[in-house]
Structure formats: C-alpha cells, structure tokens
C-alpha cells in the first residue's frame, strides 16, 4: 500500500527465517548504543591497551630499534603467560566498566514501559529475546578482550617464529577460554541486573556495586572472621584465580581453582534464574 493512500492492506510477503530473528535485537541495540559519543569514545579507549601491547611486541622484536634506543633486549620481559595474564587483568577491567555502561540499557528500557508483551506476542520466544540481548554484550565485550588478545598472540607468533607458536599454543586457548568465561559472566550479570532494575542509573550502580561491594565485603569477612572464604564473594578474585591457572602464573591465591569455577558457575546459574523470572510478558502480582 502506498503511504498517500492511508488505507489498510495486509502484508503478504515471505517471512525471514525464525532462527535469525534474535540478531535483530542486537542490531537495534548497537544502533542505539553507538548513538552515544561518550560510549564510542570509551570503546576506543578500551582498545588503547591492546595497541600498547602491540607496540611492545613490535619493539621487543625489533633489534635495530632497540639498539637505536639503547635498550638491551634482555631487559624487556618476555611475551609469555605472565604478559597475557596482565593483559587479561587490564582488558577484564575495561570489560567490566563497559558492562556497567552498556548492560543496564539492554532490558530496562523494555521493562520500564511494558514493551515485553509486544515482543512475546510475536513468533519470538523469551530465550530468543535473552539470546538477542546477550549476543550484543558478548560481541561487544569480545571485541575488547579475547579478539585483540588472539590477534596479539598471532602477531607475536608471526614475529617470534613457528617454534614459539608451537610451544605456546596453549596461550591461545587460555586467552580465548579465560577471557571468554569473564565475558560470559559479565554479560549475564549485566543482563540480569538490567532485567531486575527498571531505572537505568540504578542498574549501572548495581553492576558496579556487585563487584565493589563483593570485594569490600569479602575483605571485611576475611579480616573479621580470620578466614579466606570472604574472597568467594569477590568475583574479580575468582576469575583471577582461574586466569592464573590458565596462564600458568602463580598469583598466590589461597582459594582453589575448582572452588573459583564453582563460584562463577553458581553466579551464572543465579543470573539465568533471575532472567527467567524477570523476562516475561506479564507480571503476576500476588
């Protein structure tokens, strides 16, 4: 029907495949997110450290430049597990801040004005909705964590040679798996809190609070109870314990790796439960 006719006529085209529709939410989400210049600048800032690492890798293999700068090659730390462990800590922190900025804008605007029934009255399930919103965060956080990490590994492999790549292949797995786990945990926490708090600012504060309050309470419990079980509610410590295992770097943590895995698994489970409770087309008021 033409716009000027102003009459109703049904649409009779061929529908798109159902499996791909969750990506529509991610597409609209990106359009909304990158409308903000601040977010765009912050995203660029998140990629600063990988460029620093890239420059370091280049410098450490450029003997001519090192000689010109009068820096002995032996003084530069090797590009190894510890290097990528540090990279993971820095980029993990940026990923966390990005989650606090982006996560609350995902579900809370839909909840605030009751838009969820409109999504679920279509051939679009709750799981697809959650997958659509989650894919946005997963892709965004991946772009600043394991994707540049693997690129750095590939560049280091190309300049250090095949022998280095062969003997350090486990590092690629550690980068992908270690940072991937952190991205999944952050995305689920961001989405779950966004689904529970309708006010975006409060949701952002809550995302920050989960980590800062966790670390603070954990330290307080440890010092008052003279134990180390308080660390269990410090998610950042938990993921560092896992990273130290994956990157074969001893961080001196007193909690076992398996305990850290269980804590992160439980956190993800709680987030999924919160999402299942909250992402519904209507609320039952008791």
């Amino acid at each position: 029907m033409a716009v000027y006719k102003h009459t109703y006529k049904a649409w009779t085209g061929r529908p798109t495949p159902a499996w791909s529709r969750f990506l529509i939410l991610a597409r609209y989400g990106y359009a909304r997110l990158f409308h903000s210049r601040f977010l765009l600048l912050f995203f660029a800032l998140c990629l600063f450290y990988p460029f620093v690492c890239l420059a370091y890798i280049y410098l450490s293999h450029n003997t001519t430049l090192l000689a010109t700068l009068l820096i002995p090659a032996s003084l530069l730390p090797a590009v190894d597990g510890r290097f990528f462990y540090s990279y993971s800590i820095v980029q993990g922190a940026f990923a966390y801040l990005l989650t606090a900025l982006v996560g609350p804008a995902l579900v809370s605007p839909d909840l605030a004005n009751g838009a969820l029934p409109l999504f679920f009255s279509r051939p679009f399930s709750r799981a697809e909705y959650a997958a659509g919103k989650l894919s946005l965060l997963l892709a965004l956080l991946s772009l600043i964590t394991w994707v540049p990490g693997l690129l750095l590994f590939a560049i280091q492999s190309s300049v250090a040679g095949w022998d280095w790549a062969k003997s350090n292949l486990w590092l690629a797995g550690a980068i992908f798996f270690g940072l991937g786990v952190w991205v999944v945990v952050l995305a689920l926490i961001g989405l779950a809190l966004s689904a529970w708090v309708k006010w975006r600012v409060a949701a952002s504060a809550l995302v920050l609070g989960v980590f800062f309050a966790g670390a603070g309470f954990g330290a307080a419990i440890n010092s008052v109870m003279r134990t180390n079980y308080g660390t269990l509610i410090d998610l950042e410590q938990m993921v560092r314990i896992i990273w130290s295992e994956l990157f074969r770097y001893d961080s001196g943590a007193e909690i076992s790796v398996s305990t850290a895995w269980i804590v992160l698994g439980l956190t993800c489970g709680v987030c999924v439960w919160l999402l299942a409770r909250r992402i519904r087309p209507f609320e039952i008021v008791k």
Partner: peptide
C-alpha cells in the same frame, strides 16, 4: 516489531 514478526 515488524522485523521480529518476520518481515525483511
């Protein structure tokens, strides 16, 4: 909403 209903 149209796209979610299956419209290209």
């Amino acid at each position: 909403m149209g796209e979610l209903s299956g419209l290209p």
